[in-house]
Simulated assay, not measured.
Amino acid sequence: MTKRPAPPVPRTESEQTSLLEDERGFFAEQLAKPKNARKTVRPLDETPPEHFHGHRERLREKYRDHGDTSLADYEILELLLFRSIPRRDTKPLAKALIGRFGNLAGVIGAPLGLLQEMKGVGEAVALDLKLVATVGQRMLKSELREKQVLSSWSSVIDYCHAAMAYESREQFRILFLDKRNVLIADEVQGHGTVDHTPVYPREVVRRALELSATAIILVHNHPSGDPTPSRADIDMTKTIVDTAKPLGITVHDHIIIGKDGHVSLKGLRMI
């Protein structure tokens, strides 16, 4: 015997009214939607907003708990970029910068224009990176103040390397010393091309006399990275030594700075 379905339970007037309102609301929503509306799909290459927040916190904790030795160069660069780029994953950019400039020092020391050639690096980011370079140079320079420079030779080299090694053009710098070999002034006397800077020995000596300096240290960089002195470097140094000596000014050394190290002409017995 076939069992008949149970008859529908009568609805109260209020239940019928509520059901009718729900149906009207449903159909109203369907009519309001455009016929060609599509479901929003996140692009495959778009980083979810929350993707990198946990990574940033973990990297900060790693630095806090274990210090800088626990971080790779690109991770330290990430920490710097966090403050300049607050709403984007900075790991790809940090790795790209290291790849372009070789290492962390190369990134920080790179000229402003070259930094801005990198995709994702605007003027604000580039200036923040150069500010870090300036802070580092000022710290190293402060190590030379009120000290006998010749007894702090490693500090001299560190400072000159930080200031000049990653310049894209040659730069000629002079450290002026008093009779106690304490630094009086540090001045860039000229900028040149990628392989030459014009130097005028009489101008070098004239400036030393203006500052009452009794000794000087000559410094220039080789943007090629190789600090090996050229014949022109050696001849120019000899001319300055010969011009300065009769006036009581000693040329302690001529240091050539490159990305890969430095060369001392005094160490090579060329002074």
Rank of each mutant, 00 (worst) to 15 (best):
I255K: 01
S264Q: 10
L80C: 05
G120A: 09
A244S: 13
R11Q: 07
L140V: 05
Q116K: 14
E23F: 12
Q171K: 13
I257V: 07
L177C: 07
E61Q: 15
P48D: 07
Q148R: 09
E203Y: 08
S70R: 04
L129H: 06
T69L: 06
T90N: 14
E13H: 10
N36S: 11
S70Y: 02
P10N: 13
F176D: 01
S151E: 12
H161I: 05
P223A: 02
V149E: 07
I257P: 00
D128A: 14
T243Y: 14
G248F: 03
K39N: 01
E21V: 14
V156D: 05
S155G: 13
I108E: 12
V219S: 00
A110W: 09
P111S: 08
H196R: 11
D253W: 07
V132L: 14
T17Y: 14
D260I: 06
K119L: 09
P92Q: 05
V188G: 00
I249C: 08
R42Q: 09
S14H: 10
R173G: 03
F82A: 13
Y159S: 01
S154L: 11
K179F: 05
G248L: 08
S14N: 11
T228L: 05
I98A: 07
R60K: 13
A28Y: 06
A162E: 11
F52S: 03
L127D: 13
A208E: 01
A163S: 03
H220K: 02
L129A: 09
D235F: 09
T250K: 09
I216T: 04
F27Q: 13
T90Q: 08
P7Q: 12
V251L: 03
M270I: 12
V188R: 01
N36A: 12
